[in-house]
């Protein structure tokens, strides 16, 4: 139809960053900065309890109040940012590696291996990911390390499925067939041409994945199979503050808001990257 055809040139025009995009970028940068440098600035008092000052409401001294142990909620969030984001990065990196490896093997390997790996991926996609991760984490002994490993070994199916599709597509392109005729080895083809093409997709997916991983990680900690008290990880913080909602709402609201803001910021970053790569998605 005529309307979208006419709208095209505007969408394709080289644009600067919008105010909203700059806002999201700064938010992500700020979160990363907090995660990296925050713990260096934190006062030592947050690692010990001070019962006399417990459950104090927000004030000039304690911006977000204090928790049941009298620790400053704000500084615990800052320290927790490092734990939370580092864990999420680790999870996404690990399962991306598993996904890339499986996808490469499936795409380059013989037909039966591809078929078998894709059925395994189907099974992985059909199962409730969080519940299986919960099982693994509980079996290995509840800890942040267990939760990270459990999420890494359950998180790969979507990545594997997506990458394998893209790799197959790349391999059907004329230049790959041409190179094969010229005697370029399959391994060289995969590493030099097919893989780099797919990594691009992985990078786009990465930001959105961090957003969801932060959420699931916090959920596992809340259930009790992830980070354990006195860890400052945000999910564990909410879990231990749970009983104080009605007496000291700030102890629950603050860490939850931190999870929400981080998850939303990385999710939006993912959306922005995706739209910039493919402007036709704009407005959808």
């Amino acid at each position: 139809m005529t309307a979208p055809a006419i709208a095209q040139p505007a969408a394709r025009r080289k644009e600067g960053f919008s105010a909203f995009e700059i806002f999201v970028f700064s938010l992500v940068v700020a979160l990363l900065a907090i995660a990296i440098f925050g713990p260096l600035l934190a006062p030592d008092s947050i690692y010990s309890s001070d019962i006399a000052n417990s459950l104090m409401p927000p004030s000039a001294a304690n911006w977000f109040g204090t928790d049941d142990q009298g620790r400053d909620v704000f500084w615990r969030l800052i320290v927790g940012a490092q734990t939370t984001l580092l864990s999420a990065f680790l999870v996404v990196t690990l399962y991306s590696l598993i996904g890339v490896t499986l996808a490469t093997v499936a795409a380059a390997g013989p037909r039966w291996l591809d078929e078998a790996l894709m059925r395994v991926t189907d099974i992985g996609l059909a199962l409730p990911g969080m519940i299986v991760a919960l099982g693994f984490a509980a079996a290995m002994g509840a800890s942040l390390r267990s939760a990270v490993i459990a999420m890494a070994i359950t998180g790969w199916p979507i990545t594997a499925r997506m990458l394998r599709g893209i790799m197959r597509q790349t391999m059907e392109q004329p230049f790959v067939a041409g190179a094969q005729v010229l005697g370029v080895s399959k391994w060289r083809l995969m590493t030099k041409h097919v893989l780099p093409n797919s990594l691009d997709v992985l990078i786009v997916k990465w930001a959105g994945d961090i957003g969801t991983t932060v959420l699931v990680l916090a959920s596992l900690s809340f259930i009790g199979v992830g980070a354990q008290p006195p860890s400052a990880e945000w999910g564990a913080t909410i879990a231990s503050a749970r009983g104080y909602v009605s007496t000291a709402w700030w102890t629950v609201v603050a860490p939850g808001a931190a999870v929400a803001i981080t998850s939303i910021a990385f999710g939006l970053l993912g959306d922005i990257i995706q739209v910039r790569r493919d402007p036709s998605l704009r407005g959808n």
């Binding site: 005529t2 006419i6 709208a7 040139p9 505007a10 704009r282 407005g283």
Partner: peptide, 13 residues
């Protein structure tokens, strides 16, 4: 007149 994308401007067809 058809609008051009979301820019608010339009083009006279």
């Amino acid at each position: 007149d058809m609008p051009l994308g979301r820019s608010g401007s339009s083009v006279r067809i």
